[in-house]
Design a protein around this nucleic acid. Sequence first.
DNA 1: CGAAAATTTGACATGACTCAACTGGAGTGG
DNA 2: CCACTCCAGTTGAGTCATGTCAAATTTTCG
Lengths: 200, 200
Amino acid sequence: MADRSPNNSVNLLIGYFEKMLPLTEEEKELVASRFQPRLYRKRQFILQEGDVCNVVSFVVSGCLRLYKVDQAGATHIIQFAMENWWVSDMGSFYSRKPSEMSIDAIEDSTVLQIKHDDLLDLYTKAPKFDRLFRVLVERSLVGMQERLLQTISSDATVRYEFFLKQYPDLANRIPNTYIASFLGITPEFLSKIRNKRVLR
Amino acid sequence: MADRSPNNSVNLLIGYFEKMLPLTEEEKELVASRFQPRLYRKRQFILQEGDVCNVVSFVVSGCLRLYKVDQAGATHIIQFAMENWWVSDMGSFYSRKPSEMSIDAIEDSTVLQIKHDDLLDLYTKAPKFDRLFRVLVERSLVGMQERLLQTISSDATVRYEFFLKQYPDLANRIPNTYIASFLGITPEFLSKIRNKRVLR
DNA sequence: CGAAAATTTGACATGACTCAACTGGAGTGG
DNA sequence: CCACTCCAGTTGAGTCATGTCAAATTTTCG
């Protein structure tokens, strides 16, 4: 099993990159020098609403969520970020404007973070990362399109089944409230869907 | 006004790129040699379900839609692509697998297209395009996140108002059926929303 | 002008939300 | 180990949002 301790986590990230494109020694050193490991305890914030999002986080272990709290106080989860996922508020990160979203840890989590200026610097020093991140963002976009399609075309029952298929383990790790908030339904309604489900 | 005739449309694209990053003469020539102008008449297909998506299209004039037809025969519009927008089924384009989506022209449209292999070649010959497309895809992803958030957090009336604000002109150019299919509601229900709206 | 498509309208059915009450663990402190 | 609290989850009644279907009306376009 991969060593997910903070000390060796950068090697994990380097291995992750190299599954896409091999890196030179210099590029590996750049990654090692720019990405900082950090531990977040359950319920700690990586980003709070109103702050400018200044880092991009790569999840080594644990799970984060990116979400927005609306005027009525309801939270809407835009993304779960588990092992080997990336998370940030990209809008705030690049515009340098205060974020309307928050990111916090659902479980104790280890992440590797890169600051805004360091990432721009990384892009300039090693254009290979332009390509790596282009590909990563393209994949995210494809996933996001699929989720949007689901959301506008299927009812909540179908969306829930799809969620279980797509994140089989996550369903046991997080409260159902979060799943409801990810699917865009109330916890009560999700409970009713689950209830009907076991009858079959 | 910009010259949107097919013959000069490549200059439009080059200008578009240069608003983000200046290009060298060689890079301009690469763009001019790889992108082909093409006219689509209203209702013509750029991509049909079951085909592999082999091109990325930049819309010079007109409007395209990217959509999926579900098992029940209902169409769900994932994206409208107007002047200066990009469209393709990125999933199919990179995986080389048959697409489950379609792209067609809502109006007579002029586009600039680049083929799969030419785009990969462009990335390799001029890494600046890795960066350009990284930034473009990042912007798309931010927009997509916002739309997803809207969809899971707001009711159809709010979503429609938001649509009108975001695409003020489009609402007069396309049938309401398309707008409904973009918002994830039935045309009948959209009609009722519009009806209530004029009363105020 | 005439046919086909888009839009509207109404009656009814279903999906999904609200609110409040209840249930059942998982800590926590004595 | 027990009593307590707290929070997630469940359940039910009533309500609102949205879908379905069919018919009428308007618009578009050949």
